[in-house]
Simulated assay, not measured.
Amino acid sequence: MTQPIRKVPLTHGAQWLIRAFNLGTRNPRAIFGAGLLVMAVLYLVMYLFTMPLRVGESEPDMERIVSVIGIAALAAVLVLPVLLGGLMHVIREAESGRPVRARDLFAPLRQHKAVQLALLGVIQIALALICGTLLLWATGPDFWAHYQDMARGAIGGQVNVPAAHSPTLVIVVQLVYYYFSTAVVLVSIPLIMFSGLDISAAVRRSLGASVWNLGSYLFAAMLFMLGVMISGALISVVSLAAMQLGSLIHPAVGQLLVVAVVVAYGSAFLVVMCGTCYYAWRDVFTDNDDAPAANAPRTPRPGELEA
């Protein structure tokens, strides 16, 4: 029987984020290792799909560059929900005290849920096309050409913001798109992974939850973005300090330290984001915080360590 969507207080948005910040106390190696694996897989996808730019023509034309990068970005959009589902699986298993390792990030493949998760990327692409069509209608046919001129001018240090026919409508359309496209993907992932729903049911219920709990979801999102801005500024300072200290030994050491800081921050970012969505799913869609996964618990293999 499908469980009802709970209406939760506004303050629960803050609680989800706080609990996500405290993730990793049970099994940090598995949780943050899975976060690093997410980044590694995304990098590998982008590297493989942009390989045509590194072979063949010595100087590919701009149209080919845009096409290849666009295809690579589409591939990443399809792969990302699968990886986020795997990361939420690792988080859930670790928080439940069950044995789990970083490579359990690929649990959606074993559980045959990767295709449904990847289809969330297709939905996100469709929503982006709808948003683009609405923006084109709201801004006039010349807006995008002016926008491209603005982007090219920004590279040279000259920014001329294009004027839209309906600037208020542009802002509203973009806010609605970003909220619902993000909610559909991030809320549908645990519904597919843990609630046993197919993609159509998961999308319907995620849309319902994003409307029914608009306040708590937005509050969590605003707190998360505020945290990203503050932590991003701090990481910039830390990276600069690491570069300076490492350069005292060798410039390559400084660059390596900066990469290490950025990668660690990226892993923490993914863990907190997925953790927030996981706790939101538990709060809104389940009756028992420690409810078992939809699939039967995996029996630990002999000699398997929790870490």
Rank of each mutant, 00 (worst) to 15 (best):
A102T: 08
G156W: 05
E93W: 12
V90A: 10
A126Q: 02
R103W: 15
G156F: 08
G132D: 04
L129H: 03
E93C: 09
A102M: 07
L119R: 14
H112T: 05
R98T: 03
I155E: 14
S96F: 04
L120P: 06
A118C: 04
I155R: 12
V100W: 11
Q116V: 00
W137Y: 09
L119S: 11
L135P: 01
F106W: 10
R92H: 13
Q116H: 11
L105E: 10
A145N: 12
A114I: 04
I125D: 01
R152E: 13
L117N: 08
A128V: 06
L105V: 11
Y147W: 15
A102L: 11
P162M: 08
A102Y: 09
D149C: 01
L135D: 03
K113N: 04
S96V: 01
V115P: 00
L117D: 04
A107V: 06
L129D: 01
Q111C: 00
H146L: 07
Q124G: 15
A151I: 14
V100A: 12
T139Y: 00
K113C: 02
S96R: 15
D104S: 08
F143D: 02
A138I: 04
R92M: 09
A114W: 15
A128P: 00
D104C: 07
R110W: 11
L135T: 02
R101H: 12
Q158H: 14
S166I: 01
A107F: 11
A164T: 04
F143E: 02
P162Q: 06
H146K: 13
V100D: 07
A107D: 08
V115I: 15
I125G: 04
G97D: 12
V122S: 07
H146V: 00
A163W: 00
E93N: 12
N160L: 11
R152I: 10
Q148L: 13
Q124L: 05
L129S: 05
V161P: 00
G153T: 05
Q158T: 15
L135F: 04
Q116K: 12
V100M: 10
G157E: 08
A128E: 03
G140R: 05
G140N: 04
W144S: 08
A138D: 03
I91L: 14
F143Q: 02
V100L: 08
G140H: 03
L117G: 05
M150C: 07
P167S: 09
S96Y: 03
D149K: 12
I123L: 15
T133L: 15
A163Y: 00
V122P: 02
F106S: 05
A145D: 12
D149F: 00
P108G: 06
H146T: 01
L120A: 07
I91K: 08
R110M: 11
L109H: 02
Q148R: 12
V100T: 15
F106D: 04
